[in-house]
Design a protein around this nucleic acid. Sequence first.
DNA 1: TTATATGCAAAAGCTTTGCATGGGT
DNA 2: ACCCATGCAAAGCTTTTGCATATAA
Lengths: 143, 143
Amino acid sequence: MDADVRDRWLSQAGSRLSGAGRRSGAARTAVVELLAREGQCLISAQEIIDRLRASHAGSAASVYRTLDELLALGLVHRLEGRDGSARYEIVDPGLRHHHFVDEASGEVQAFTDEGLDRAIAGVAERLGVALSSRDVVLRGRRT
Amino acid sequence: MDADVRDRWLSQAGSRLSGAGRRSGAARTAVVELLAREGQCLISAQEIIDRLRASHAGSAASVYRTLDELLALGLVHRLEGRDGSARYEIVDPGLRHHHFVDEASGEVQAFTDEGLDRAIAGVAERLGVALSSRDVVLRGRRT
DNA sequence: TTATATGCAAAAGCTTTGCATGGGT
DNA sequence: ACCCATGCAAAGCTTTTGCATATAA
């Protein structure tokens, strides 16, 4: 967990949410704080729900509602999991990575690669599009 | 729709399925033929179900069962949709493409890009992994 | 005070599964 | 004849929604 990213995103999220005219309640606060700490790489809604239930700090409905809000404000990014459940991760300028899924263990590893980023930028230019998001998920086995 | 790809995949699918000891029934045949024609770029299970129901040629259960089989045999590729419903597309040596989603219209456009493929191969080598699949989904707007 | 956030429970999709039946080989 | 494929309906999951209540501003 990167403390700089956590703090920066937390303050970003705080201002964007209040700027959008939303009030801050206990459940939303709990979700936002959990995401700042553990949403730096893909976390599932179910995992958030389970964690909050363990500390009596929010219901499933509030988790989904908060995630929707954050998504609409561009504060989180959503990636569909292989099992039909969505995974979220915070959006922060200091975080730009892609994902590799080890099919042997199911474990997700984040990586960065400048060459890949350049290739994607090249594609966007060639297609004549302005990108708002890029999902790259590689799957395979370690050799 | 590319007729060469359709025919090649159809014969591939036929031999691999019977080779795996599976029998051919009406429903599975209908799914496989529909995929050969319209699964060259992302089609959802729901869409297949609706089409087959319209022609009384298969149930939801059979569609999912067939898709699972094809997936296990590596004959289709599965990509999770933004709305929590999976999308499938046939796997064919002559078809290697990535996807761009136009956020204005929701339309999906397939594209190929050698530079991107090279960059991905480079990443795999650097990470020391053997890839079994690569999902690249770019989202944005045409400029 | 007044609108919004929350929790519960019900509802809504998509997908899977059990079981009896039909059909391939 | 034997087993697999199929269809139906029920069950399972994740996610969404309605509504009464609690709470921030």
